[in-house]
Write a protein that binds this DNA or RNA. Structure first.
Length: 438
RNA sequence: CGGGGUGUAGCUCAGCCUGGUAGAGCGCCAGCUUUGGGAGCUGGAUGUCGUAGGUUCGAAUCCUAUCGCCCCGACCA
């Protein structure tokens, strides 16, 4: 992609409405623009990151045995009356009347809809287990949206729902998501710590929040030092027993500030560290809370109808964009982990219009792209300083700096955005090195 | 929803107290010079001063109402 054709409205100054660093950088880097309080337009750069994150989430959900579906954003109020939540949910739920004066709503979550799908289409325990998920837009009419996409009213969420015949198997579904979450966040370069959580209004008796650690995170957390460096499980057999992995991770103390209990922490022992964090995922087991009132029954092995055991599992996909920036930035801008970067490589043509530079950039662009990497080439007729600043701001992991002096010597400069390390290399060496690094 | 702040050019903001007919920097357009870390000079375009009323000869400025946005608190992926 040539930057001269890419829609990338960067800002030199901080927009006054943005206070936290991720919000400022997302606006400055041309990723998003606010539409109204808590509702955002996603511009091309932001959309690319959002989709990269969604794809990692999707991949790990699929590996863990969940299946993707798409449910409506606009739901019928009838289902919510059936589950009893139509009155309980409160003004956070955006209620709408259609032209026939029927009660509709913009879905804040999808337990009712997915339970409805399930009950009409699954009749026997032999069809279990099932885990259905979607990556879709939700709307919660927050009293006070803030922090850019970190707490918007409209947000992209992965929500999965598991259905099992009994508690033990439902717990296995819960564990599958638990492990999948560890892997998902690690793939984005994040340290995410599972912490015991209240199950809140969704209900249930087993629940964990996944908190991403970032110095600028909104809430303080306390956790055992070991959790910070603990490697996530590899080559997971999701059909096998996952309980040892979950037990291992939950054996260390970890709590958010509100739930911090120094006495309990002391009992569990170990070196406690305090950090700051952002909640990016939340998993619940809630048994028959919805399957009972909504009659989501299957015939069990004993021939009797029984309500299924359910769990729900959320990841804030759009929030993750902000969380990743909170955890990966410096004074100059964003520093994307390679797995979610909008482009892998940025080429800076220091002298657009100079035939040697233009040719070198074109050759690099083509070769790097052929090796499967996304490239953004800054071919704008701008001064070098502007290009350096913008490239640092948008945070692509690698920069290839092409200038007339280097090209005359047959070299270009390769800069690592995170470390700042630079080296002069031949064009072939750059292409090889980038391909290996990716 | 309680408390606070703010709304003037695309962005950051001055002007408001003490009313006199719209400003700066950056950005944008044109030209010349410049060219490895957000250039210099010259010329140019851009505003219903959030909106609606009111006071006044005259309102960005004073008064009233209203809307938007931001921050702190209670709540949340």
């Amino acid at each position: 992609m040539r930057l001269s054709r890419f829609f990338l409205p960067t800002l030199k100054e901080n927009p006054s409405e943005a206070q936290i660093v991720s919000h400022r950088l997302m606006l400055r880097a041309g990723m998003v623009r606010q539409h109204t309080a808590g509702i955002y337009n996603w511009l091309p750069l932001g959309t690319r990151v959002l989709q990269n994150i969604a794809n990692i989430v999707r991949d790990e959900q699929n590996c863990a045995g969940a299946q993707e579906i798409i449910m409506p954003t606009i739901q019928s109020g009838e289902l919510w009356k059936e589950s009893g939540r139509y009155d309980d949910y409160g003004p956070e739920m955006l209620r709408i009347k259609d032209r026939h004066d029927r009660d509709m709503l913009y879905g804040p979550t999808h337990e009712e809809v997915v339970t409805d799908i399930f009950r009409y289409n699954v009749k026997s325990y032999r069809e279990l287990p099932k885990n259905l998920y979607q990556i879709h837009w939700k709307f919660r009419d927050e009293v006070r949206p803030r922090f850019g996409v970190m707490r918007g009213r409209e947000f992209l969420m992965k929500d999965a729902y598991s259905f099992d015949i009994d508690y033990e198997r439902s717990k296995h579904a819960y564990n599958q998501m638990f492990v999948a979450y560890l892997r998902t966040f690690a793939r984005m370069g994040l340290k995410a710590i599972p912490m015991k959580a209240d199950s809140g209004p969704i209900g249930g008796d087993l629940s964990h929040e996944f908190i991403v650690l970032a110095e600028t995170g909104e809430s303080a957390v306390f956790c055992h030092k070991t959790l910070l460096e603990k490697p996530v499980p590899e080559n997971v057999n999701y059909e096998g027993d996952l309980q040892p992995i979950v037990d291992d991770w939950t054996s260390y103390y970890a709590a958010t500030e509100e739930k911090h209990d120094p006495v309990a922490a002391a009992q569990i022992g170990g070196e406690l560290v305090s950090a700051r964090g952002i909640e990016v995922g939340h998993i619940f087991h809630f048994g028959k809370k919805y399957s009972d009132p909504m009659k989501a029954n299957v015939i069990g092995p004993d021939g009797n109808q029984t309500a299924v055991f359910m769990g729900s599992y959320g990841i804030g996909v759009s929030r993750l964009v902000g969380a990743i920036i909170e955890a990966n930035h410096d004074d100059a801008g964003i520093i994307w982990p390679a797995s979610v970067a909008p482009f892998h490589v940025g080429i800076i043509n220091l002298k657009t219009g100079d035939t040697a530079c233009d040719d070198a950039c074109a050759k690099l662009h083509k070769a790097i792209k052929l090796n499967g990497l996304d490239v953004l080439c800054d071919d704008r007729d701008e001064r070098a300083g502007v290009k350096f600043a913008d490239m640092d701001l948008i945070g692509l992991p690698w920069q290839v700096i092409v200038g007339p002096k280097g090209v005359a010597k047959g070299v270009v400069e390769l800069k690592n955005r995170r470390t700042g390390a630079r080296e002069e290399l031949s064009m072939d060496a750059v292409i090889t090195k980038l391909t290996v690094a990716a």
